[in-house]
Design a protein around this nucleic acid. Sequence first.
DNA 1: ATGAAAGCGCTAACAG
DNA 2: CTGTTAGCGCTTTCAT
Lengths: 330, 330
Amino acid sequence: MRLKPTIEDVARVAGVSRATASRVINNAPGASEPLRARVHAAVAELGYQPNETARALVSGRQRAVDVIAVTYGSGIGWLGTHPYFSRALAGMMPVLEGVNAQLRLHAVAQETAAEAIDEIAANATLGAVLADITPVLAARFYRRCRRTVSMVPTASSVPRMEADNIGGAYTAVKQLHERGRRRIAAIHGPALNPCAIDRRTGYRRAVRSLGLTDVSADGDFHRDGGYRAARQLLEQHPDIDAMFIACDLMAAGAVQAITAGGRRVPDDVSIIGFDDSIAAVCTNPPLTTMRLPVEEMAAAAARLLLEGDPEPGHRQRFPVDLVIRDSTRN
Amino acid sequence: MRLKPTIEDVARVAGVSRATASRVINNAPGASEPLRARVHAAVAELGYQPNETARALVSGRQRAVDVIAVTYGSGIGWLGTHPYFSRALAGMMPVLEGVNAQLRLHAVAQETAAEAIDEIAANATLGAVLADITPVLAARFYRRCRRTVSMVPTASSVPRMEADNIGGAYTAVKQLHERGRRRIAAIHGPALNPCAIDRRTGYRRAVRSLGLTDVSADGDFHRDGGYRAARQLLEQHPDIDAMFIACDLMAAGAVQAITAGGRRVPDDVSIIGFDDSIAAVCTNPPLTTMRLPVEEMAAAAARLLLEGDPEPGHRQRFPVDLVIRDSTRN
DNA sequence: ATGAAAGCGCTAACAG
DNA sequence: CTGTTAGCGCTTTCAT
């Protein structure tokens, strides 16, 4: 079988030099119309496709955005079951498409995260989007590669996309309160997750300023954890009439626990989730939720990287808006 | 700021030749212990990280698996809302991790798919996993790059991972029938989607062999389509007592439509979905469904690529198993 | 066991 | 406008 044609072959067939071939292929100026035509013909005849690796090496830029996800213990099952990550990818791909940039996906195990991160940083080109990296690791990465954007709250110098998690949580509780609920419990996310921390803060502030009681349980940002937390909450505080839940997946579990316990949503217990992920519309009833604009954030992150090195401390703020569905409608 | 150190720098600092440095870095034989130590020291001192691009160019192999997704019309919103794709990614990443292979993600617009596919094929290294490519496009890709694996039914010569969609659909209907249901409707997927076609076939065979009536509606593999199809089905055939739905996302919508119409799941209408995606456990009640082992299929596809060129027509079969949850429990 | 040298395929000065 | 010539950073013969 014939080897893949190189630009050398194209040049030979077209009867020009490699340089000329390169010029017309990259449609750079400095090539006459007749030669252009000959080169194009040769390209077509040979089915020539530039070798991106060689291009990248010589030009120093490979035009790839790296996306890093850290996997905790149990493997990366969460990538397949947690909508967050795929939303981020979905947001980035359209902006990368058409500008000849590719997306590289890295799953790094928490235990070896440090080394893995060093290697990724060393080979970064357009830069990296840190989807859920802890502040410490993010800072480490940033030290090795300035072209970095975090999508979660992180070390202060790292450029980031910032969603108003605190405000969102506050709004959620306030909304529940306005609808007349007074025993508003919360199911929070992992204690160390930066987003979860902010949402917890928002809940606490709202509870305090509205004169309510803090009734909290801890979840893990997964459905099962939401189910368990809700059941436990209901047992310990049977008078709960609303729940603010820090993630839709947990909210889906909570809805199941609540109805399994013989109560109705929203009549007995009103629910507001967080994220507005696919889970929010799959539950029954569909969830009122605080929309985290993941796609927009990811797209903006990609665009920022495309523009060049972001300023240290650069930040772009994103609103977290209330999306009303049936889990609060009654 | 200091430029990134090259192997040249390492060699100089260690006082050896580039060749020797290369040998120890790749821990190839042919370097004495004392020199190895000096090189390692130099690497550590400089924080040297090999440039993967240069490596790839010289060795001809970049160790990357390309994943291609075609986007239809409206953009790739579906990637963020449809669990299939992220499950495939989740399946591949663990097998790629640790073998120093990376994952490249490509979203190609349907209109320009042909050219895009040619370019990807030209730059493929370990090969490509075709997640949802039509047979025609898959064949085209395969013509340009033998290292290809499709995850959906496709042109006969293209190596593939084959799930028993027909058998799964058949099993689902049979299960409903065994539970005493007799008016078993179906909501199918897109007319041209190869998986949807097989599931439709399975439904038809079951209906015929069980002596039931074919009551079908068409969906789009999304929640909204499932909602609409279910509502329409219920209006036109109020005596329906069960539904086989070709995808969990549609099933989630159908559950909502059914309960919104005042009927209960599973008491009045029993439901079996397909996929066993995150949507199946977010609905209320959780869905009985036919499990498509997407993660396993994707992992096997990645492994196949890692092994070298798959045989033409290579196929690996995967079962589609019944997972019983509450939507059929009564 | 070690080093010198030849490229991988391409782009980008630099000459002509 | 066109061609010649250096490399990009690395691996890999091939001598030594």
